[in-house]
């Protein structure tokens, strides 16, 4: 009986080694919560900005797909403002995400930069870069209405691809993002709201849940 006890211990250890050597498990739920908050602030800003910019009084987001003529106001064109806002949100979200994940890795006595995190990053970066270039093309052809849904779809694909190399929950978050993005493709006026739900609310919910499940 003692012998089988020992074998069971070995098996548990082997399972953990298989898991740790392929998956990056230090991803912190707080990274998701932080990214979600950044996204909500960004979406709120863009909405207010659009309302101010086009004081028509109608639904501001309608203008996202029904635009004729050049941006009228002095200062930054609104495409530039949109891209700038998106970039600021991205950088703040990534910086905070890195901070929380690095902290969790330290607490677990693991390195952040190791083979599993490199693989995770690659798996994420490929669909994300594709999506980024795709969105630049949309912007180039003035198809602003499809920007928000397209970012959701490509981000979802990236998460799904990356979920092989980190906590599996990330995959179902990816599926939800893809779903939201596809819905958004058919409701162009609601792009910003769906974007706020996907990048904001879902991130906070998933991040909070993952924090509760793994980090405490």
């Amino acid at each position: 009986m003692n012998d089988s006890q020992q074998h069971l211990e070995h098996l548990a250890e082997m399972r953990s080694l298989m898991e740790r050597s392929t998956r990056f498990l230090s991803l912190s739920g707080l990274s998701g919560v932080w990214a979600g908050c950044c996204a909500l602030v960004g979406a709120f800003f863009v909405r207010n900005y659009l309302e101010l910019q086009f004081l028509g009084g109608n639904n501001a987001t309608d203008l996202l797909y029904d635009r004729s003529g050049q941006s009228s106001n002095a200062g930054l064109g609104y495409e530039t403002t949109l891209v700038l806002a998106a970039l600021i949100v991205l950088v703040t979200a990534l910086a905070g995400g890195w901070f929380f994940t690095a902290r969790k890795a330290r607490q677990r006595g693991e390195r952040v930069w190791e083979s599993s995190s490199r693989r995770l990053l690659w798996a994420l970066l490929l669909p994300l870069t594709t999506g980024g270039i795709f969105c630049l093309a949309l912007l180039y052809w003035n198809l602003i209405a499809f920007l928000a849904p397209a970012t959701l779809v490509f981000y979802g694909l990236a998460l799904l691809n990356g979920s092989k190399y980190t906590l599996g929950d990330v995959g179902s978050l990816g599926l939800l993002q893809i779903g939201l993005g596809l819905i958004g493709m058919f409701f162009p006026g609601r792009g910003l709201e769906l974007w706020a739900i996907g990048f904001g609310v879902l991130h906070i919910l998933y991040g909070g849940w993952m924090y509760y499940k793994y980090d405490r």
Partner: peptide
């Protein structure tokens, strides 16, 4: 031996693993 089982476990689910990573994981 548990270390040999450990080595094989890691190599069973990864393509190529460098010495340093093996050392650290085990």
């Amino acid at each position: 031996h548990r270390n040999r089982l450990g080595i094989m476990s890691i190599l069973a689910v990864n393509d190529w693993v460098d010495y340093g990573t093996l050392k650290e994981l085990l």
